[in-house]
Amino acid sequence: MKMFNIQLYADAALPQMTPGDVPDLELLLLFLVAGVICISAIAVTIALLIFNRKKKNRDLCSGKDAENINNITKDKQGE
């Protein structure tokens, strides 16, 4: 079982050898594809977060809220 390590902290599986030991360029290509998918996943997550935040801000600044604020101000002035 010398082909395999468990990475401390991350609980991940690590091979004992690196591509330096395993001369196979296809593996490098696979990593690049995995990397692109990984970066895309991060980008989509960040984009969704930004979109949600903007949507929230838009809702807060909508006419409905402004109307409520006006009503409250009028009530206070009435008092």
Binding site: Q7, A12, L14, T18, G20, F31, G35, I42
Partner: peptide
């Protein structure tokens, strides 16, 4: 994702 980004270089170096 942070964990993955941290250990994935170890597949190569």
């Amino acid at each position: 994702i942070g964990l993955f980004l941290g250990f994935v270089p170890l597949f190569f170096v």
